[in-house]
Design a protein around this nucleic acid. Structure first.
Lengths: 195, 195
DNA sequence: ACGGTTATTGAGCAAGTGCTCAATCGTGTC
DNA sequence: GACACGATTGAGCACTTGCTCAATAACCGT
């Protein structure tokens, strides 16, 4: 996971940075107004001078996601390499941490309008990224897929589920097994007779 | 989702009931000591007389899960019917509500030992339920699966992912589409050439 | 009746949350 | 130098959380 923002000097940007840092380190529970202002080296009142709290939280989350999305499906011109990269990096510790944040965002989005807006946008990006990749590969004849869109959805959902299993306290999978399952599922989608 | 417990008269059981009710109605956020004691028609102090709060919370959650698990893979003697039932009821509103609770439990289990114990047990039950079902069907020749255990894991993970998409604020799927994807994934697992 | 054990209550505590606001500081303008 | 105005502070408010504890009620065996 790359640094989502370049280091900033002004205190407004420092607040966003601090929120992102804490979000990545400890998830939503670690992110409070006091924790953020303290991390930013700033008085508690300044946060409310520049932001509303839900607004800042959603802003930080959106920046994290954009940085990840920017990376995840970078070289879409070579579908085979891009997919290989997707599989290889699917269950790294960074990816898992990010997935945890995603999970927390899902819940928060139910009651927080700022978060919901950010979530909608991020969700759309994530799905079209994989779908475009699979469609490109199918068009180039790298693999055969009856319905790349549907395969992307299933693969994405499987990814979520596997990440969840990986994260759950009941240790069922390790990262390698999860990756193998994801690859296997893709293989099944490819070998299937068209219909 | 059936009533997880028969109606009780003594106040100790009423506290558990009230916790379950609130859990099902509004999720973890709706379940506070005050809300529970009020729902149970009981003074706030009584809760701590009988339980520690994390203990009661985990207890209620465990009872909900057991009731669901008892139902989900009931008629395992007829694998085909049981699987059909699994698909048909996978994404009902009740199932979705339950999945939301499951999600919250995942997060809570990270920091709550009582919850973690309950989660481990529940998680094991859920996985073996589907795995046994698929294995039984394979043994009876109802379907051909190279590795029922692995298929169960993938199908379970896909279910989690689809349920997550269904729950997410970005409306991508409806319940029928999710069910179709789950069935399609199972079909792919079956048609695959052995190897 | 009595004594003792348990059940039960609710005011209140301590900790934590987001947020306010009068007061200061800093800096540029005329 | 005086003024204005945004930046900045932190004590404090209002609220919520789980939990305590002295006081009371209810029950039961003797």
């Amino acid at each position: 996971m790359p640094d989502p923002v370049p280091p900033a000097t002004d205190r407004q940007s420092r607040l966003v940075e601090a929120t992102i840092e804490l979000l990545l380190e400890g998830g939503l529970r670690a992110v409070t107004t006091r924790a953020v202002t303290q991390r930013a080296g700033v008085g508690t009142g300044l946060l409310n001078h520049y932001f509303r709290w839900p607004e800042l939280r959603a802003l930080a989350w959106a920046q994290i996601f954009e940085a990840v999305a920017r990376d995840q499906f970078a070289q879409a011109d070579d579908p085979e390499a891009a997919l290989e990269r997707y599989f290889a990096t699917a269950f790294t510790p960074d990816a898992r941490r990010f997935w945890h944040l995603w999970l927390e965002a899902t819940e928060l989005a139910a009651s927080d309008d700022f978060m919901q807006a950010a979530f909608r946008k991020a969700s759309a990006q994530a799905r079209t990224g994989l779908a475009d990749l699979l469609a490109a590969g199918a068009a180039q004849g790298v693999w055969r897929l009856a319905d790349p869109q549907a395969t992307a959805l299933r693969l994405g959902a499987l990814y979520d589920g596997l990440a969840g299993l990986l994260l759950s306290p009941a240790q069922i999978l390790d990262a390698d097994q999860a990756e193998a399952h994801l690859r296997k599922a893709f293989a099944l989608e490819c070998e299937a007779p068209t219909g």
